[in-house]
Design a protein around this nucleic acid. Sequence first.
DNA 1: GGACGGATAGACTACCCAGTCTATTTTCGA
DNA 2: TCGAAAATAGACTGGGTAGTCTATCCGTCC
Lengths: 200, 200
Amino acid sequence: MSPELDPPHGPRERLLAAACEAFREEGYQVSIDRIAARAQVARQTLYNHFHSKDALFGEVVRHSIQSVLVTLDGDGDVRATLLAFGDAYRTRLLSPEGLAIFRTMVAEAPRFPELAKQFFRQGPHTTRKRLAKYLAQAMEAGELRKDDPDFAAEMLTAALIDLDRLRGLINLQTDLLKPTKTAQVVNCFLRAFAPEKDTP
Amino acid sequence: MSPELDPPHGPRERLLAAACEAFREEGYQVSIDRIAARAQVARQTLYNHFHSKDALFGEVVRHSIQSVLVTLDGDGDVRATLLAFGDAYRTRLLSPEGLAIFRTMVAEAPRFPELAKQFFRQGPHTTRKRLAKYLAQAMEAGELRKDDPDFAAEMLTAALIDLDRLRGLINLQTDLLKPTKTAQVVNCFLRAFAPEKDTP
DNA sequence: GGACGGATAGACTACCCAGTCTATTTTCGA
DNA sequence: TCGAAAATAGACTGGGTAGTCTATCCGTCC
């Protein structure tokens, strides 16, 4: 395609970056002209690179998937691993970008059902599957009670963000990352999934 | 105001009902003309009753709050009470109406911040506070471990809907109300908040 | 029967937007 | 330096929307 991809100096890259910010701040409704103006580029130049607004939106969404992917580092013990995961998960999804992409995808899911499915499968679903895989190993090793690892992953991820995400979506307040919250949730989770007592 | 309020035969009531359905199905973007047509009413009649589209939207949202309120019936034991609450909570919030109002409020929160706050305070927040009050009593009675009841309520409500709501918002599929899910979540919750063992 | 209040249809204003087209200018490599 | 490719500004099409205004219509009550 174009010779330069990494530096943000080609018009295509400037357009993608500008569209990313614009959709984040104003949703899909933002006009083509505002995106072009933000990229300091003529409207026609935008259409030279993306054949429609929908195509540009799709590109931006696919680019944004990585920003809500969270990895697991299973080095330490279970509590330490889950604490690290929980902090990363909350930091990513409660960031302004994470909240904005969530809002936009929820709002536009009826209009772009396939794109929405792709986003959530490659983003949140992938993250949850990674967590479930780790939890399955911990269950196998007797560090957690044996249960459905997918269900356990669902419980932990839900507890980590559900209400605070709502707060972020509504209030636009950013004091959501109370550092004690992750530990509180992980403790709660570990109680629910503690290994069976060996003194019955 | 108008002499008749309950029957849906006055134009005002027909307009409110039509706007409710229209906003639910198409979001805030739905045009005034489509709402008027759905109510089988002239556009000017709409403006005789609501002085702007925003005013009509506000009325509809305030009317919709009750549709996401869930009450608690603390008659039986804790498990039975939470099972009943959980089923009601999931039924309400995962219904097409519950999902639609959630989608619309999340999408439009930046444009109507005060309305969004009002909705979530009088809706989900009120429900959670009721649950927290019940949990506090159960903790006091020794039926649950003593902990922060607000945190416990947050955990339970998050676990009950977080992922399934996302599924409903994306897939438009309605097999979200798997009847075993509530019990699975409540069991998990009760393990996490079981009273301390009296054999230390 | 006549008058009046609310409902109606539809024209009308004043915007905004996606996407196309054209003519001109800039850029950049051979 | 020259020529092709890309970028630009701006007009233009076709369409949609919120809200206003006017003239007509209908039912109800006196």
